[in-house]
Amino acid sequence: MSAEMLPEDLLYAENGHASDVVLTCLADGEKAIVPPALVAHVLACPTCHGHLGNAALLSLRAGEEVAHHLAAKKAHEAKLVPSPYLALAAGLLLAILGALPRLATLPEDALSFGKSMVEGGPSFVRTASHGMVELGHASEQGRLVASIAAGALLLAVAAALARRAARAQAS
């Protein structure tokens, strides 16, 4: 089975030396698609050999430039991808709605979690856990107010995000 070779009409330049296409192929390491006799000529002929060196240097330089071009293209495409603000806002809103019943029992949860950590947790979390216990005790009295305030705050953030997303989309 013979590998595919370059067509005849691309092999020689008008002056009888190897064509630019052949030199590019050899410079790119594609020796297998150039007829062996022509490869031998390029390596022996001072003119073709000189052009082969230039073609190889150009191949090297082109590789660097194309790599730079591809990196820039990728960075540009990444910029064009819109941030999913609306989806984020909707998700945040849903999360808030889902967490609302839980917000009412947040102080008790914090208290029990803190207690369990103080009793069984490692020493480096005990200090933080004591803080949570204190927080739980302090906010037992006004837990309803705290829950509503926290919910309102989260809703305000979500609303701000949604408004910003809508403005960005409009512009």
Binding site: L26, G50, G53, A56
Partner: peptide
């Protein structure tokens, strides 16, 4: 051979 061509060119 390719290395030699590059060196000669440089």
């Amino acid at each position: 051979p390719l290395v030699r061509a590059v060196v000669a060119s440089v």
